[in-house]
Amino acid sequence: MATKDVIVLADLLGTNKKIASDIRTELERRGILAVNLLSSPGAGKTSLLEQIAVRLRDTAKMAVIEGDIETERDAERIRARGVPAWQITTGGACHLEAKMIARVLPQVPPESEFLFIENVGNLVCPASYELGERLRFVLLSTPEGDDKPKKYPKAFTTSDVLVLTKVDLLPYLPFDLEKVKAEALELNPRLQIFVTSAVTGQGLDELIAFLWRARRDLTARHA
């Protein structure tokens, strides 16, 4: 009987990273700005996307991929706003993986300008999986509490944008907006922060302007 030691040095997420990188290359070549949205369940990802849809649908071509464990409900909400949407049901998995996006991608119109991918509601696991996005948004809603960034650091350190949602509820909640911003910036000084409400519309025009700037940067790089 012979024994031997083999040094492997393989990235455990290498397969996912490779697929994500191929998706990123393809989307950027087509000029599609892809955004991966992360948050815990109920933070308002779909409500934010509905509001983005209302503000972008007349001037831009956007598409949405919805990730959930079960049901077609979120995709139906987006379609009701006149925007094409595809539902991925993971059947139990707590996050989307790049190979799931690769399967849906052929259906996304090639002339799209924005592709939003709503991840499974979970502030932990989705943070480890690149999906080929150009930008990662993490949403935090005021009822969840202002202590979340330090408790779930990876979602905040790997994101480009923090969207604080449901700020219309601030008068009723012990939520310290400035503390959250300061703690999130300690985790990730490059984080851009938007303070929003899908009910009052606060902060949404700024977010839309940011999305257009990001898409211009993308197409300028690939012109």
Partner: peptide, 15 residues
């Protein structure tokens, strides 16, 4: 931030 398979130990039946 890494998640790496560093090394493995293997056994074969041939001498």
């Amino acid at each position: 931030t890494e998640m790496i398979l560093e090394r493995i130990e293997l056994e074969s039946d041939d001498a």
